[in-house]
């Protein structure tokens, strides 16, 4: 019995050695490619767990820069337009999914307090910007973020085409808030026009 047991153990050890040699051979010849593939899969195809509560954003008022930026699709501010009695959440991003929830912030523009162009957009529905036509020059807009409150005064309104991006210029010289929505407000289907409200930061 002992001899059978010994012989069996020796053969199992040989099997282990063959396995180690096979795995070793694969690792030596393809190890780097395997590691790269695993890293790529983890980077591209594996959902990351959200970290939950994040630290509040801080703004350097001298440099006019945020220390970190909110993630795409997250709510970071509230916009109030007292003239049309609207208080709406503002989300980072301008995809249709984001706009379903509230006002979108174009990620190609600056954030309130950074001293540049800020571009917001929203639907012309009754719960959003349907009453934009009632806005006049001199009306106030307040944007309340996690890092401060910013007040703006409307100085212009324009109807532009959806492709006229030069009418919504991105610059860093002075802080301007530009909010647009689809036009006409009672359009059916798809419209190529946008109604833009321009506002300057109150100093």
């Amino acid at each position: 019995m002992t001899k059978i047991f010994k012989a069996t153990i020796i053969d199992i050890i040989v099997a282990f050695l063959i396995t180690i040699i096979t795995i070793g051979g694969i690792y030596l010849s393809l190890g780097q490619e395997i590691e790269n593939t695993v890293q790529l899969i983890n980077l591209v195809a594996i959902k990351k767990e959200s970290k939950g509560i994040t630290e509040p954003i801080k703004i350097d008022t001298e440099k006019k820069l945020l220390d970190k930026y909110p993630a795409y699709g997250t709510k970071y501010a509230t916009i109030e337009i007292p003239k049309i009695n609207k208080t709406l959440p503002v989300y980072v991003g301008d995809s249709l999914d984001v706009l379903k929830n509230g006002v979108g912030h174009s990620t190609s523009s600056y954030f309130p307090g950074e001293g540049g162009s800020i571009v917001y957009m929203g639907h012309n529905t009754k719960d959003q910007f349907h009453d934009f036509s009632e806005l006049e020059i001199g009306d106030k807009i307040k944007v309340t973020t996690d890092y401060g409150e910013f007040n703006y005064t409307i100085y212009d309104m324009q109807v532009i085409k959806e492709t006229e991006f030069d009418k919504i210029p991105i610059q860093r010289e002075e802080e301007k808030l530009m909010i647009y929505t689809c036009y006409p407000f009672t359009a059916l289907g798809h419209t190529i026009y946008r109604y833009v409200v321009y506002a300057n930061l109150d100093i």
Binding site: L96, L99, H123, Q128, T186, A187, L188, G189, H190, T191
Partner: peptide, 11 residues
């Protein structure tokens, strides 16, 4: 996805 287009459509 369809619902995203309803908002601005006036429909």
């Amino acid at each position: 996805g369809f619902e995203n287009y309803i908002g601005p459509s006036g429909l």
